Amino acid sequence: MEQIPMTLRGEAKLRTELERLMKRRPLISQAIAEARELGDLKENAEYHAAREEQGICEAQIRDIEFKLSNAQVIDVTRMPNEGRVIFGATVTVVDVNTDDEVTYTIVGDDEADLKENLISVNSPIARGLIGKMEGDEVAIATPGGTKEFEIDKVAYI
């Protein structure tokens, strides 16, 4: 089974979501029981809605449990990689052409959220940055064309 790279923050977020879903289980079961008491199940919209919600909840639980069981949790604060871009690092880059500064954190696929500048380790920008050092200039082929960046700062938080 292939391990799924994940940061400590990503693992904590998944565990919190799993806990929330586990607490919903009995509430959904109770809603199904109450809907059953209403009579004919063939035309009982409340029953069908509760069963559908139960199916979605159980699928989400299985998905999270699978991800956690195959997670390779990486704590970058314990890794001696001063100045090198690695999985889990927070990287500040400067666009060479526009002088725009952006800070990205390189995370696992499931943790990626561009609105929070969390980019997947498999994204073109992350793949272009991994292994580089603070101060390096890199040219990265992106879907929008080639971007040139200078790595300004690498942090492990």
Rank of each mutant, 00 (worst) to 15 (best):
V94A: 11
K153W: 00
A112Q: 01
E116R: 15
L38H: 04
G39A: 04
A31M: 07
L129K: 04
D95E: 06
V85Q: 02
C57D: 14
S69N: 15
R25V: 14
G88Y: 00
R127L: 15
R25L: 07
D100A: 12
A71F: 01
V73G: 08
V121Y: 15
A31I: 00
V154K: 02
G144T: 14
L14Y: 03
E101A: 09
M22F: 03
T142I: 13
L38G: 02
A126V: 06
D136Y: 00
R51S: 14
G88N: 04
E11T: 08
T146H: 06
K132S: 04
A139F: 13
L14R: 04
S120R: 14
I119G: 01
V94R: 09
I157C: 10
A33P: 13
D152Y: 06
L14S: 04
N81P: 05
S123I: 11
E101D: 07
I130R: 11
I157N: 15
K132R: 09
Y104S: 04
A139N: 05
D40A: 00
K147C: 08
S123G: 05
T146C: 06
E11Y: 02
F87M: 00
M22W: 02
R20M: 09
G88C: 05
E53W: 12
T90N: 03
G135Q: 03
D113E: 11
P26G: 07
E134R: 14
D110L: 10
A139K: 11
Q72D: 06
I106K: 05
A49Q: 09
I4L: 15
E43N: 15
P143Y: 06
E82H: 09
A35K: 03
A45Y: 09
I32K: 03
M1C: 12
G108L: 12
A35V: 01
A31K: 10
P124C: 12
P80Y: 08
G108S: 05
F149M: 00
D152F: 07
R15W: 08
I28T: 11
M133I: 05
V91L: 07
A35C: 02
R51E: 15
V138W: 03
E11I: 12
V94D: 02
E111T: 01
G108F: 12
I4M: 13
P80S: 13
K23V: 15
V96C: 11
F149G: 01
I106L: 09
A31L: 09
G55Y: 06
P26D: 07
E53Q: 14
Q60L: 06
N70C: 13
L8V: 15
V102K: 15
E134V: 00
G55C: 07
F87I: 03
E65P: 00
G88Q: 02
R51T: 14
I86P: 15
D100V: 04
T103R: 10
R9G: 10
R78W: 01
Q3R: 14
T77S: 04
E111M: 04
G108C: 10
G10C: 09
L8W: 07
N122T: 05
L114W: 06
D109Y: 15
F66I: 04
A89S: 05
R25E: 13
N122M: 06
V107Q: 02
G144R: 14
S29T: 12
G88R: 02
A50S: 07
Q30W: 11
Q54C: 03
Q60D: 07
S120E: 12
V138M: 09
D63N: 03
G128Y: 13
Y156E: 04
A12R: 14
P80F: 07
D110G: 12
C57N: 15
A71E: 13
I119Q: 01
A89N: 01
T16Y: 10
I140A: 10
E34P: 11
